[in-house]
């Protein structure tokens, strides 16, 4: 288990990450929280768009595309498996 925090946009495709910290403020932070990106939430990095950005993530059963600006403000702990 890797304990280092990485920005979500650097989580390799197909990997899972556990949300540890949001560095965004204001309404951007609210939007993230509304997506269910609270502490301990497991997120899967699903796929890159053809140009590499945005990236689609599976968050609480929904597929959400985030631009790198937003995803970089979500710090996750990379985990291999769900759980």
């Amino acid at each position: 288990m890797n304990k280092y925090l990485i920005p979500l946009n650097q989580l390799p495709i197909g990997f899972f990450g556990k949300v540890r910290k949001l560095t965004a403020d204001g309404s951007a932070r609210r939007r993230m929280l509304d997506l269910g990106l609270i502490n301990d939430t497991t997120v899967e990095s699903l796929r890159k768009s053809p140009a590499g950005d945005p990236i689609a993530y599976e968050i609480r059963g929904a597929v959400i595309a985030l631009r790198s600006e937003e995803a970089s403000k979500i710090l996750v702990e990379s985990i291999q498996q769900l759980g």
């Binding site: 997506l35 945005p54 929904a62 600006e69």
Partner: peptide, 8 residues
């Protein structure tokens, strides 16, 4: 640009 969060 405003934040872009879009559901697929």
């Amino acid at each position: 640009p405003s934040s872009f969060t879009m559901e697929l």
